[in-house]
Write a protein that binds this DNA or RNA. Structure first.
Lengths: 195, 195
DNA sequence: ATATAAATCACTATTAATTGGGATTGCAAA
DNA sequence: TTTGCAATCCCAATTAATAGTGATTTATAT
């Protein structure tokens, strides 16, 4: 469900890594990386998308530049600081003495906030997809409006939103986007329909 | 080479049909139909494309309505009148007393005029393909003009001609046309270029 | 309960595209 | 050598699209 979200755990202690692994193995993230130090990030080029980093606050500040460099392709990064100090407890901090539920809750909360982020900011809504399909068939905003029984203004609004979300303005670009993203099937489109 | 061109021979005399069959069997046409009367056209529904009709002038005028009805889906029809009268000789007339070469020449001339017709009227010119490629990349007429060092008017002219030839008016339709006809490669188009 | 976002509609100004005429030049084939 | 086409350019009228804002309603998730 949460696509494109990775969890990156950086901690010197293997015991902590193993413990977190146990907590996270049933999480909704599709990839979890465990490393002992930020230097090992070099073994993971191409890290991109949504990334949750579990790291000690200390390690974070000491490796800030390196982490930023290695995660430069990330869409969004969220940090959860793992602390050994029993009196440091906050929303963006995990204390190793917290109970398991509390920790998994914090992580799942982050994951679902990412989910909201992903779905709401990048994915096209049902209506937008309908508009895009008709657009791909060569129909004008006016014609699309007539088919969907909405006003031309609304179609224009949808197109604006589609272009904002996809960052694609041109009709040809949107057509290619629709084909690539399987919103329309090029095989099913008879050229005779395009007149 | 000559695709979509049919020869339709209509003559009461089987001997003439057989004789013409001998003359035409090596012609460039991809389908030759021999019938004794225009009524038999009912057995050939869906006749379309480029059609050369060999018929006597008399039969033609007596069956004009029927022939027009049965050939209503033809893209273009050319008539060659087969005459029994030895003094009727002209470019669009075949006299059965003409020698074989003369007859095949007349038919091949018609076929190649059709070929010119087909290739020139439907295929996109070099410049049109250039314009189509840029169009597919989401560029406006103005931008295309700047890239090709021609005026926007010319780009518009090219687009008019492209739409006339392909019968496709919409940008999305032309994009799909370009993909289907390998004028652009969808794999090579990075969506980031489409912004 | 409230914030969010999807879906709807509206207006104006500006820019772009289309349509439907023309015209000219140069080349290449019949 | 004429005919046809490709390629170029031009104009005016019309239609369509885009940008920039803003507003309402309804459903959903926290």
């Amino acid at each position: 469900m949460i696509n494109n979200t990775k969890i990156l755990v950086i901690n010197k202690s293997d015991i902590i890594l193993l413990g977190l692994n146990d907590l996270l193995k049933n999480s909704l993230s599709n990839e979890i990386i465990y490393i002992n130090s930020a230097d090992e990030l070099e073994n993971y080029p191409h890290l991109m998308g949504y990334i949750i980093v579990l790291i000690s606050e200390n390690d974070f500040y000491q490796n800030k530049a390196l982490i930023n460099k290695q995660l430069k392709n990330a869409t969004k990064i969220a940090y959860l600081f793992i602390e050994l100090n029993s009196d440091k407890i906050s929303a963006n901090t995990i204390n190793i003495y917290e109970n398991a539920d509390s920790i998994t809750n914090k992580i799942n909360e982050l994951l679902s906030s990412f989910k909201r982020n992903i779905s709401n900011k990048n994915e096209l809504s049902k209506r937008e997809i309908e508009v895009l399909k008709l657009l791909t068939k060569g129909l004008s905003n006016k014609e699309i409006a007539q088919i969907l029984f909405i006003s031309t203004y609304t179609v224009i609004s949808h197109r604006k939103n589609i272009s904002e979300k996809t960052k694609i303005k041109s009709t040809s670009g949107l057509t290619i986007y629709a084909i690539i993203n399987k919103i329309v099937n090029i095989e099913e489109i008879s050229t005779s329909e395009l007149i």
